[in-house]
Structure formats: structure tokens, C-alpha cells
């Protein structure tokens, strides 16, 4: 076990733990945001740079600070390491810069984006973004395309986190989409018109931190904050059948995996609770589900507002 201090909070963690994971063990304000790292998908992380933190003391043995900010998702802790997240001005600036970069080419089409209300980029922009834009150039645009008959790709919104590529590599038997071109022209694509047909491809939607990959069966049906998330389960031979159904009245509008406060799928029966495409896209009939009860969404974005808390609590949370 090694000792690490993050924003004046100290915790003992196993050797090899990353700073981000140690911070999540502490919980609360010390946890850096993460847009590309996804603990259930090995190999992700390091790319978006939103989780940058300052290491003001490398370790007990070698107390020198690290000269650059480091990606907390991929930097292992050392014994006696001291990390600054919220308490570092440099982190604040660096992260603000990253948010600005992520937004310069973003269409800011939240009003017509299905992800609005549960979007990590919205949260990030809210917490670390500046007001207005200094970007005077024309934004980069792509045509939205269908990848398969159930998934829509809006490349304009993509932040190139590579999570969906990891899903295809790790959950499906054959990857048909990937990252093409390079630099600012890099894009997610199948290249040739190629449908992603696989029982677990729908999980790409759940891992997408923004509205780049959306569920076509839910497209423009409702805003997420008008829906009530309910914990539900069904008999399924392909997956655990444990999901969240998003309801309006007695109607199921969409089905997602059960996700934790960091937007990651929770473990079900000891393994990551990915859900299959049948559950996600085809079971919109209430009779197919056993509905256990309301699902608390422990996140700060708007979907967590209003439904299960008193208005007073909600207001406090926004502030």
C-alpha cells in the first residue's frame, strides 16, 4: 500500500493505482474530470487531457515536483506523492485551456442534441469553460451518418476520446469503425459505408461522453430530463438484463446501462454491466421489464435535477 495526498486529503491505495483512481476512492471534489478514460475499458485514457493534475511532490523518496501537469488517469501514484487538483492554479488554467480546445470546433448544438442534460462536455464547460469564444475561424463540420440502423454518428460533436473504438475492440468480435485521417482532420468512421452490427455495439452510445453517438430509437423523442430513470431488469440470454429504463408515464423511451456517478457502467454480478442491443433497442415494452423503482442519478448535470429531490436541494446543487 502507498500513501497519496490529493488536495490535502490523504489515502492509502494499492501500488500501481493511478492518481485518478485514488482520487475516486477519496471521492467528492478532489476527483478530476475524465472525458476519455473509462476504467471498464483497459487502454483508454491519456488523450483528452482534462484530468491533468499537478504533482507537487513526486514521492517520499524523491520529493521533487513533476515539471509538467500529468494526466491523472494514467499516472501511477508513488508513496508519499502529493497531488493538487482543485487547489492548483496551474490545473485550473490548464484544464480551462483543454475545455477551450474541445469547444472551438464543437457545434454547441445542445438545443437539438439528445445528449444534452447528461453530457460530460456540458458539465466540463460549465465548470471550467470561459464565457464567449475567441475562435474566429470557421468550425470544422462533418455530415452526420448512420452507422448501423440504430446508431447515429455526429462527428461534429466528437472529442475523439477513442472510447467507442475500445468498445468495438473489447466487446465485439469484429471492429469495423475506427479513427481515420489525422490531426484536426481525424474522425471516427467506418470509412466505407459499413454498418456496425454486433450484439454489444450499442454500448458505444453509453460510453460516448458527448452526443457524437446517439441512439436512433430515442432520437428527438424527448429531452432526457423529462424522463424518469427506473431500475429495471429482464430475462436476457445475451447480457445481465440489468438496465435503466427511461420512462415518461407508462412508456419506455430509451434503455441504457446502469451507470455510476462518473458515467461508467456499474458492475452487475461481478462484471461490467454492458447491455446487449436487444435490451437497448428492442425492448421498449413495459411488460418486458421488471421495474424495481426509481434510479438515483448521482451526477451534477440537469438530468439529476428535479425528480427525486426537493427543489431546494436541487438549487443548492447547481450552485
Amino acid at each position: 500500500m502507498v500513501k497519496v495526498t490529493i488536495d490535502d486529503k490523504t489515502i492509502e491505495v494499492e501500488l500501481g493505482t493511478t492518481i485518478l483512481s485514488a482520487a475516486r476512492q477519496i471521492g467528492g471534489e478532489v476527483v478530476p474530470p475524465a472525458m476519455c478514460f473509462y476504467s471498464k475499458l483497459p487502454g483508454t485514457g491519456g488523450k483528452c487531457r482534462t484530468c491533468l493534475v499537478e504533482v507537487s511532490q513526486g514521492s517520499e523518496k524523491d520529493p521533487r515536483p513533476m515539471p509538467k501537469l500529468v494526466a491523472s488517469c494514467s499516472t501511477p501514484v508513488m508513496d508519499g506523492m502529493v497531488v493538487k487538483n482543485k487547489t492548483s492554479e496551474r490545473v485550473h488554467e490548464g484544464r480551462g485551456g483543454v475545455v477551450e480546445f474541445l469547444l472551438i470546433n464543437h457545434p454547441l448544438d445542445c438545443p437539438i442534441c439528445d445528449q444534452a442534460g447528461e453530457c460530460h462536455l456540458q458539465d466540463l464547460g460549465y465548470e471550467h469553460g470561459g464565457q464567449g469564444t475567441r475562435y474566429e475561424e470557421e468550425r470544422r463540420t462533418f455530415d452526420p451518418i448512420d452507422i448501423g440502423n440504430k446508431i447515429k454518428l455526429h462527428m461534429n460533436r466528437c472529442i475523439l476520446c477513442y472510447r467507442c473504438v475500445a468498445v468495438a475492440n473489447q466487446l465485439t468480435d469484429k471492429r469495423v469503425h475506427g479513427v481515420l485521417n489525422r490531426g484536426e482532420h481525424a474522425e471516427i468512421s467506418t470509412y466505407i459505408e459499413n454498418a456496425i452490427e454486433n450484439d454489444f455495439s450499442g454500448n458505444m452510445i453509453d460510453v460516448c461522453p458527448v452526443g457524437a453517438l446517439t441512439d436512433k430509437t430515442f432520437r428527438f423523442k424527448s429531452r432526457v430530463w423529462f424522463l424518469k430513470p427506473m431500475e429495471a431488469s429482464c430475462e436476457c440470454t445475451k447480457c445481465s438484463g440489468k438496465a435503466v429504463v427511461w420512462m415518461f408515464g407508462n412508456e419506455i423511451f430509451r434503455v441504457t446501462a446502469r451507470k455510476d456517478q462518473y458515467g461508467e457502467v456499474e458492475d452487475q454480478d461481478g462484471k461490467a454491466g454492458w447491455i446487449c442491443n436487444d435490451c437497448r433497442f428492442d425492448k421498449k415494452d413495459v411488460s418486458k421489464w421488471n421495474i424495481a423503482g426509481p434510479r438515483m442519478i448521482n451526477r451534477h448535470s440537469v438530468i439529476s435535477q428535479g425528480h427525486y429531490q426537493s427543489p431546494r436541494q436541487s438549487i443548492k446543487k447547481i450552485n
Binding site: 488523450k47 487531457r49 480546445f101 472551438i104 475561424e137 479513427v179 489525422r182 490531426g183 484536426e184 481525424a186
Partner: peptide, 18 residues
């Protein structure tokens, strides 16, 4: 440098082009 950025991390992908 904008031409040669691999496009993997956001500051370089977006910043060099900008």
C-alpha cells in the same frame, strides 16, 4: 505542426490548427 499533429490529444489537435 498542424499538418503533422497525430490528432490524439486535444491541446495539440485543436491548438496547432488554431
Amino acid at each position: 505542426y498542424a499538418h503533422e499533429s497525430c490528432g490524439q490529444c486535444s491541446p495539440c489537435r485543436e491548438g496547432t490548427g488554431w
